[in-house]
Design a protein around this nucleic acid. Structure first.
Ligand SMILES: [Mn+2]
Ligand SMILES: [Mn+2]
Ligand SMILES: [Mn+2]
Ligand SMILES: [Mn+2]
Lengths: 225, 225
DNA sequence: TTATAAACTTAGTCCCGTCTAATTTCGCTC
DNA sequence: GAGCGAAATTAGACGGGACTAAGTTTATAA
């Protein structure tokens, strides 16, 4: 009916168009999928012919109302699998992404619903990303803020971390940083380094600003308090 | 590395060549895979070039020592998944086959080992088929006998049932026939009907001889006792 | 307003796994 | 050992998804 590859394209388009429904450019999609641009052009034409995306040559693509639920279904599968693997099959949160990225295309909705039930219908995956419900409602991001937006002295609660970099995930969990962790910003430098103090420990954790910008967090108290 | 389709061919060849290492003919394989003969010829050439099978034109194929472990790995995945789905995710034994037949190609060995561990390394799947161990040892069939080989009055213990016919599986479980069930043969007819009495109940269960021949069973006591 | 670089699409090729139609080989009977 | 039907193979095509090379379009900036 719809190949695993096509599903990955739809998922990527969903992710890249973000909240703002921006058109996703061929080059962006090519970069993200790890293929050359002509492969993308050829694929988006097929997706457009089957009405999963609006495609305007030279302008990019946007998901249609047909495409969105397909993307959300796959995302639901992915995040439920990640949660199930970590909670029930003793996977480390750094390992789950690749396994989930394959299996998401091959489990039935029944399978997804069963593991959701086993887990008590969790709202978020191990990286803090929201899990769409069975009828594909997805909660909006709690805040748009990232660790890079903070001032020295701010205390913030980590919301979500990127899920596709095992090394980073291992580093973060080794230093006690996971979603719901509270950290204080202890230093920011002009050359792009952010230093954190997790939870009231004395440990310092340093992150490049680009990484800090990929971690979202909710402000608890400002430096002014 | 090896496509899901190729894995299914190898699994089919393993199944069809059976214990006896008979050559599997193109037509048999085509029938079993639900494809036309030229598709099989073309595929077995590819498998032969990659040394998974010995192929002799017009004579058929046999798995090589390279091909056998690949087939066994997939069979291990399949049967572990069936067991996991029935035991942990509330699937009915009639439903598990199709889900397992897809997922078997996409779970990692790590995933398989984890669910095996969760289940306590079971020896058989829900249909009574042996599950190869992590190092791919597979126990030989307990006996070669089937329900069609029995005499009236014999008591036998059901060993394994075919796993790919949901209607049959539903029928059997509704009438209390599963692996390890003990049944008595109460009637066999010249026109190919076998009637059973499960376990000491008064219920009669009738099966066509062809179906009876697909169910293996171990003789407990003969009519002469 | 036009030149130029970057982005994008088109054209053509390849491998995969399937198909139909045509041909060859096998195995058996006479 | 010739003939014949069944089984298998070869030939050629197609859709999926990728690639490289070549040609367009767009955006930008002189
Ligand atoms: Mn994927
Ligand atoms: Mn995740
Ligand atoms: Mn399969
Ligand atoms: Mn089975």
């Amino acid at each position: 009916m719809l190949s695993a590859i096509m599903e990955d394209y739809l998922k990527a388009i969903y992710y890249l168009q973000g909240e703002t429904d921006e058109r996703v450019r061929t080059s962006t999609l090519a970069e993200h999928m790890g293929v050359e641009q002509p492969s993308v052009t050829s694929m988006v034409k097929k997706l457009a012919k089957r009405d999963f995306v609006h495609y305007e040559p030279y302008k990019g693509v946007v998901l249609t109302d047909t495409g969105i639920p397909v993307a959300l279904e796959i995302i639901r599968h992915h995040r439920l699998l990640e949660r199930y693997l970590t909670e029930r099959l003793e996977y480390d949160w750094a390992e789950v992404h690749d396994e989930a990225d394959r299996l998401e295309h091959h489990i039935s909705n029944q399978f997804a619903d069963r593991i959701a039930e086993q887990l008590g219908n969790p709202a978020v995956d191990p990286h803090g990303d929201p899990i769409p419900t069975a009828d594909l409602d997805v909660s909006p991001p709690q805040s748009g803020e990232t660790l890079a937006d903070q001032q020295v002295g701010d205390k913030v609660r980590i919301e979500r971390v990127p899920d596709n970099d095992p090394d980073l995930l291992r580093y973060l969990s080794e230093h006690g940083i996971t979603p719901t962790t509270v950290v204080e910003i202890v230093e920011t430098t002009s050359f792009g380094m952010v230093t954190l103090d997790p939870d009231g420990t004395d440990e310092r954790v340093a992150l490049p600003e680009e990484v800090a910008r990929s971690i979202t967090a909710q402000t608890l108290t400002g430096a002014s308090n």
